[in-house]
């Protein structure tokens, strides 16, 4: 490999490097600044509090890698919490039946959106926008109010702590990490995953190389739908309720996590590991702000917006340089 190639390759990793440095320095500064910040549990709490976001962001990574976008994720999460709470509480269905059903519903919703996007060549953002309206609206047709969940298996999931030495995580964290692992294997070791990257790199080329572009795209939105539904299930474990106003703006957090994690919004380049880092950065911002005490919660949004700005401009400069 010549020096030039090395430079090019490193340049592609710049956003990921920046994110890692950001994460480490935020944690270091936090530890130096606040008592009780430097602890393993603070780190694990990041995962516990953001397990559902992590799962949703995994699905979003798939979509963004193809060069698409999915605005429906937050609404599908909310609908999943709502349907779960409604079926379990109002109709007494067993959770073991409800959860698979909810997952199937989310997957199907994603599949349909992917199919419409591909078949009729309508921009992803407008199709998933319609999906978002529909899912949120359906929440309210079930109930305007929040439905709290008292089912013992849900409360058990909410309260179980899986010990890790002196520390602990929740079952949701384990599930989320499994999803990340599965996502990683699919993206890097299956033809589906490689097709995702190929479509993001050049859809036209992918078609001419004989790859199944339509099927891949539909599958990707189905995966995002599945992840949103699973995120919704994890959120019911966390909130113990179903509500149409759950996860408002989650799509923005998920997109922010993906972008901060170094995935190009134009598709074709990025890693799931980056998305995990992105989610941790978002979580850490919240943690720092809550430790600070004097800073109000809206600073989270401002900081996320600022980070988005930096990363998007960075991406733009990198891709322009490459041409």
């Amino acid at each position: 490999m010549n020096a030039n190639a090395l430079v090019t390759r490193v340049r592609g990793q710049i956003p990921l490097l920046v994110t890692s440095v950001l994460l480490v320095s935020m944690f270091t500064v936090g530890s130096a600044q606040y008592d009780g910040f430097f602890s393993g549990q603070v780190l694990l709490n990041l995962l516990i509090d953001n397990a559902f976001l992590l799962v949703v962001a995994v699905g979003m990574t798939f979509v963004v890698l193809t060069g698409g976008i999915d605005l429906s994720v937050g609404a599908v999460v909310a609908l999943s919490t709502m349907v779960s709470a409604w079926l379990v509480e109002r109709h007494g269905w067993p959770p073991l039946l409800v959860i698979p059903l909810v997952l199937l519903m989310g997957t199907a919703a994603g599949w349909v959106m992917g199919w419409v996007i591909h078949t009729f060549e309508i921009q992803p953002f407008i199709v998933t926008l319609a999906g978002m309206f529909l899912a949120r609206g359906l929440c309210y047709t079930i109930s305007i109010e929040s439905i709290s969940i008292t089912d013992p298996s849900y409360t058990a999931m909410a309260q179980t702590r899986i010990p890790l030495g002196d520390l602990f995580v929740s079952p949701s964290v384990v599930i989320a990490l499994l999803v990340v692992a599965a996502g990683f294997v699919v993206l890097h070791y299956t033809r589906l995953g490689r097709n995702v990257y190929a479509i993001g790199g050049s859809e036209h080329s992918a078609l001419l190389m004989g790859l199944r572009v339509g099927r891949t795209r539909t599958t990707v939105y189905a995966i995002s739908g599945f992840c949103s539904a699973l995120g919704g299930v994890l959120l019911t474990f966390y909130m113990l309720s179903g509500y149409g106003l759950h996860a408002v703006g989650l799509e923005l957090d998920a997109i922010a996590a993906v972008v901060i994690g170094g995935t190009l919004l134009t598709g074709g380049s990025g890693y799931l590991l980056g998305t995990v880092l992105g989610v941790l950065v978002l979580g850490l911002i919240q943690t720092v702000i809550s430790f600070q005490g004097t800073l109000s919660s809206w600073w989270t949004r401002i900081v996320i917006g600022g980070l988005l700005f930096v990363f998007i401009v960075l991406q733009r400069l990198i891709t322009v340089r490459r041409r």
């Binding site: 009729f120 407008i126 319609a130 978002m132 309206f133 529909l134 309210y140 047709t141």
Partner: peptide, 18 residues
């Protein structure tokens, strides 16, 4: 319930786009 307007909007969006 006014919140369900969203469902109608969803159908309007998709119809117009189609």
């Amino acid at each position: 319930p006014p919140e369900t307007t969203l469902v109608f909007k969803a159908f309007v969006v998709i119809t117009v786009c189609l």
